[in-house]
Write a protein that binds this DNA or RNA. Structure first.
Lengths: 206, 206
DNA sequence: CCGTACTTTAGCATAATTGTTAAACAAAAT
DNA sequence: ATTTTGTTTAACAATTATGCTAAAGTACGG
């Protein structure tokens, strides 16, 4: 039977593919499952996208962008140091709340092929290294001015990022161990924007 | 040619399988690659372990144990609250330094089949939920006694765990973005035991 | 009504992967 | 010396996944 939906299938397929790829990773994903998830058949996947790898690359690039691009803006804004921390937290938690499997997906795929980080970074005109270097300089400056406690900039940076991202990466474990349903988890993450900020500020305020 | 090594192959295979499974995950792992990694041939894999799934389960159970068991001891010790935090950090970073891909592996596989958390937990006689509940009560008590700032116990718990585990999960990204080689990274993690502890204590001390 | 774009069905070729076995051989144990 | 155990080689069957295409049907716009 033909689809009665008026939806254009290209996007529909892409959304389905995102779901399956983010759930299962590249090797774990099955074209059949993607088709099923989209409610169409395998042949149509090849009609729109040549093959699995093509599809994956399109999706990975999109996801990579979602994961990094906005963050760059926040890092490189000229907000005050504490404002910047607040913005980083807000931005990360907001994005990851909207795309629950994003972080795990990007991390896992980069872990299996670390070159992709540089490769896709260049493709998007991003320089991850520079971004972090600048932020660390800012940390250093704030320490010297006595505005925050002395701390290794790399550690502070890792702390901020860890606190934002890890809960999403480990969501299935956390939900189970803390007996939370999806809504509770999401509420907790929303509240976390404030809680994490306070936690970090308390940690660095002299 | 027969092996001149005197090593018993069972363990040798298992070690190779651990490497491949933790690098690639279940679906990404190839029996051929495991054999190659072990320096033997595929037939021998089946001589020792019936099939892929059997092998995987043995390994996953081991890794799952490594990831959780020791932590339980630390959580349930009767050290003081701050000592306990220190021990949790030390323990986690020590374990993950020795087994670099452990966290990513366990998280990834549980994400794909969350039931495994309960399933393997029971098999090992662990009750993850209880452990966390008790710790949260301890947090609550310390807040009421004015020993630490008021904070949502779940958030504090997530912060501690995130700070310890995330750097290892995202190691490939972090190494690239911060331009660290393996040794630098490991040194930083060793130093992190102290840095992370101070960070957290500063964050919660009134 | 016609044509074009979309979609399904059905099927096939190819490749990759896994599970399994037979035969031979080496090394070690008895 | 011979049995047992470990190991290799080689080959195969079964399964699964992928890439692809032909044919036909649907639907929509012009």
């Amino acid at each position: 039977m033909p689809k009665t939906d008026t939806k254009p299938s290209e996007e529909l397929i892409l959304n389905a593919a995102v779901k399956v790829f983010t759930r299962k990773g590249y090797t774990g994903a099955r074209m059949e499952e993607i088709a099923k998830e989209a409610g169409i058949n395998r042949a149509l996947l090849h009609y729109y996208f040549r093959d699995k790898e093509t599809m994956f690359n399109i999706i990975f690039e999109t996801k990579f962008k979602e994961f990094f691009t906005g963050l760059f803006g926040v890092f490189q804004s000229n907000a005050s140091f504490t404002e910047k921390i607040k913005n980083i937290i807000d931005h990360e938690i907001t994005v990851l709340s909207k795309h629950p499997d994003l972080a795990r997906f990007v991390i896992m795929e980069i872990a299996q092929q670390p070159d992709r980080l540089i490769q896709f970074g260049q493709k998007l005109g991003l320089n991850p290294r520079l971004m972090l270097e600048n932020f660390q300089k800012e940390i250093q400056q704030n320490i010297e001015e006595g505005k925050i406690r002395p701390i290794d900039g790399r550690q502070l940076l890792m702390n901020i990022i860890s606190i934002c991202i890890y809960p999403f990466v480990a969501k299935p474990i956390i939900k189970t161990m803390m007996q939370m349903d999806e809504n509770t988890f999401m509420d907790l993450m929303e509240k976390r924007k404030k809680d994490a900020y306070e936690f970090i500020i308390n940690a660095i305020t002299p």
